[in-house]
Amino acid sequence: MSLKVLAVDDSRTMRDMIRMALMPAGFDVHLAEDGVHGIEVLDGLTPDAIITDINMPRMDGFGFIDAVREQEQHRATPILVLTTESAPELKMRAREAGATGWIVKPFDPAKLVKALQMVAG
C-alpha cells in the first residue's frame, strides 16, 4: 500500500534528500533528473504524487507540470513544487501551470512526508 512518488530534481543532492526522506516513511520513490526525464519516467509509471523542482535544464518545472497535466491519466495527480523561492508569484505561476502545492526548500523531511500525505493520502 505504499504511495508511489515521482521526484524530479536536477540536483543529485536534492534527489538523495528526497529519497532519504521518503523511503523510510514507506514511499515508493522514483527519481528523474529534469522535466524531459520526468516525462520519460511517467511513461509506464502512475505515481500517486509528483514532486518537482522548478529550475532545471532541458525542461523546467513549469514546462514539466504542463506536460504532465496534458496527459489524461495524470490530470488529477497531485504535484508538489519544490522550490527555494517562497515568493508568492512563483507559487501562483506553479499553480497556473497546474501544481497542487509547494514545498519550500530546504524542506524538513517530516513536512515533505506530511504534505504528500495531505495531497495523496
Binding site: D34, R58, D60, G63, D66, E96
Partner: peptide, 18 residues
C-alpha cells in the same frame, strides 16, 4: 486556465541533454 504559455520549457528542451 490554459497551461502556462511562456514556452520556457520548450526553449530549454532543445539544449543538450545532460
Amino acid at each position: 486556465p490554459e497551461a502556462s504559455k511562456d514556452g520556457e520549457g520548450e526553449r530549454k528542451a532543445n539544449t543538450t541533454a545532460a
